[in-house]
Amino acid sequence: MRVKLQRDIEKLKTRVLALSTSVEERFRLAVKSIECRDAELAREVIEGDIEIDHAEVDLEEECLKILALHQPVADHLRYIIAILKMNNDLERIGDLAVNIAERAERVAGQAEMRVPFDYFTMCQKTGDMLKKSLDSLVNMDLHLAYEVCAQDDDVDFMKNVMQAQFAEEMRKDQVHVEAMINLFLVSRHLERIADHATNIAEDVIYMITGEIHRHRGADYA
């Protein structure tokens, strides 16, 4: 029985990895579509989301099946609970990637404009956090997971700075307000993705240590 459980958990792990890989790739494609104003690529990302949704449902069913059949305890239970939560976050990241792609689709149709600041750095930072959180999952790397949690503040800060810049820019440049709003929304989506990446990292911490790392001290004020 234990052997079967072990095998099922191995299978579960493979699925999580597959899901996280495709979510990461969707995110990258979405970011690329907004950078290159590529409507075609954006469409591809939007249409591909159904795949992630299916994978999410499958993964959840798999988790529930293991819970019902094997009634796991201790670290196995922790592992499955963490994966259930992670599954949610991954699916949300997939959705946010779709949102970004939708913005890209809009922006692509509009005249090119002077972007008042460089949100590319923010894309990069968010992508980096997502990559690290998944790396920490793959390697069960506690150190990396803590690093992701620490990085979240940077992205939050960047978003706040951008918000102020957008407001100022919109007052000055009335022509491009719509494009601005689209880009502003992208920054919000990026920030949300960073939050979900942090959640994943926290779940990894929970998996390894059994401690719930959310809402800790001044870091998260």
Binding site: T14, L17, A18, S20, T21, E24, L134, V138
Partner: peptide
């Protein structure tokens, strides 16, 4: 493979 190289 998917642990080492994350590529769909």
């Amino acid at each position: 493979v998917q642990e080492a190289i994350r590529n769909t």
